[in-house]
């Protein structure tokens, strides 16, 4: 072993160096929006428990300009979370299951199918 090996360091901006790293970081940052949305709804459910007036105040906030923008931004990031999660899901399964690229696509596709069913169900039952 050399007397003075050179030890490279890693800067905090390492993830900006490569597009795949940037996509990774965006994927990870979706958690901020998942957490924020869930947090807003915890506040909403708390308002619900406090009665009529508080609930409608919560709904008014969600309908405001800021509220709409917040919802759209969160939805965009949550959709990115969904897309990335489904594309990675097959990799968690043993190679005997994911035997071919076709199989992997089928597994991801199955996730989307379930997602579509759930989404339609939620919209139908919720919006009725």
């Amino acid at each position: 072993m050399s007397a003075q090996p050179y030890r490279p360091t890693m800067s905090a901006g390492w993830w900006l160096a490569r597009p795949s790293y940037v996509r990774y970081m965006l994927r990870e940052l979706t958690c901020v929006f998942v957490g924020a949305y869930a947090g807003v709804w915890i506040a909403g459910l708390y308002a619900l428990a406090k009665g009529h007036a508080r609930w409608f105040a919560f709904l008014d906030a969600m309908e405001s300009g800021v509220g709409i923008v917040f919802q759209i931004v969160c939805l965009a990031f949550v959709l990115y979370h969904t897309v990335t999660w489904f594309s990675l899901a097959p990799r968690t399964m043993p190679p005997t299951v994911t035997a071919s690229p076709g199989r992997m696509k089928a597994i991801t596709g199955a996730h989307y199918a379930v997602w579509a069913v759930i989404t339609v169900l939620v919209l139908w039952l919720g919006g009725a």
């Binding site: 072993m1 050399s2 090996p5 050179y6 030890r7 490279p8 890693m10």
Partner: peptide, 11 residues
């Protein structure tokens, strides 16, 4: 991510 001994040789 590895210490460099010399040129392209890592530890």
């Amino acid at each position: 991510h590895f210490p460099v001994e010399r040129d392209l040789i890592i530890d």
